[in-house]
Design a protein around this nucleic acid. Structure first.
Lengths: 190, 190
DNA sequence: AGCTAATCTTTACATAGGTTAATTTTCTTC
DNA sequence: GAAGAAAATTAACCTATGTAAAGATTAGCT
């Protein structure tokens, strides 16, 4: 299990003093399967770190359809990132798909450390860059690859995950209906 | 016309000394319609700022299909951002769709200024965050909206652009074929 | 102005994938 | 382990969108 400390240090080095200040802002929190970490409608204020468990981030369309924007597994940050950084109303929901262990901090208190700890702002910069690169990759794959190719990629990248959560969540993450994913699986099995 | 200086200051304040160091790294460059700023295959090293003109960023699929990931208009940064920040091989091409005026800098020299000018690293952080938020928005729209809705949004956001570049580039940017966009336009006209 | 090439539209056809509803399978929980 | 709920599959049908090719229109030269 990767600690928050190791996770951050994996991104960029940090002075011990910066780490102390950061660590002091995170408090443990549990989510039970089905609980929400954030819901749409208000500006996001908190950032979380998943120590264990699975969380889906999804957007809701006008007709009630849901789109699983991301499936988070430990270790990773969760929260309404776009809302946190822009200050706009959050439009994303994040629901625990299993029981989860989190560490949670107030985002504004964290960003308040940037002036005192430029090495922490560097972490934030690199994180934002990594998030961007991941999004760009996903965007290209959504447009350039067939649903079948996306499914195969998913199995490579997140092996086993398809047996831990309902298939319709994976379908939504892949941008297809559950029915279509079922067809794809059938045709692959042959 | 927005200068590089104003563009950067619009993101986050900057000391005059930082600006001087940054500005010294940018050199003017012209692109003629059809010229490429970057092509896939090597790690990206340069970042550009468009003072005027239009550039498309596109990915190529295995079968030669192209997907216009982004249409850049002045003022904005261009370059193989994902490659610059990760150091991975660049997979994106960027082609001038009109004659362009650019300012171009070596990316490593720029990032070398972060230690000396934390206020510039702050600019970089905020930029990365904004890029991320824009990508996320685009991702959601690609999956949740119909091609017609995406086209209408495009016309709102980039008014007039559809008359400056070939329609098939816009179709590709919207994630549909030129034929389909033509059908959409016809049905809207009625 | 007129020629050529580029762009856009249209037609005809094929297909991936959506929707709905019924059925089967798997998981919970008492 | 039986009953009920949740999840997954299947079938039937439909639509958006792709591809290819032909025509029509527009734009860029010289």
């Amino acid at each position: 299990m990767v600690s928050l400390r190791d996770f951050i240090l994996g991104i960029s080095p940090l002075s011990e003093s910066a780490w102390q200040d950061i660590n002091a802002l995170f408090l443990p929190k549990q989510l039970r399967k089905g609980d929400y970490f954030i819901t749409e409608g208000k500006t996001a204020t908190q950032i979380g770190f998943i120590s264990s468990g699975i969380v889906r981030a999804f957007a809701k369309g006008k007709n009630g359809q849901e789109y699983n924007k991301h499936l988070f597994t430990a270790p990773s940050f969760i929260g309404g990132y776009a809302s946190l950084i822009t200050g706009n109303i959050n439009k994303i929901n994040q629901e625990a798909l299993t029981d989860c262990e989190l560490l949670v901090a107030d985002y504004n208190k964290l960003t308040g450390l940037y002036d005192k700890h430029p090495d922490f702002e560097r972490v934030a910069r690199k994180l934002a860059e990594l998030f961007f690169a991941a999004k760009e990759q996903r965007e290209i794959e959504l447009v350039m690859l067939s649903a079948e190719e996306r499914y195969l990629l998913f199995r490579e990248r997140m092996p086993g995950l398809e047996f831990e959560i309902p298939l319709y969540h994976i379908a939504s993450y892949l941008g297809v209906s559950a029915v279509q994913l079922s067809r794809i699986r059938k045709s692959l099995a042959r």
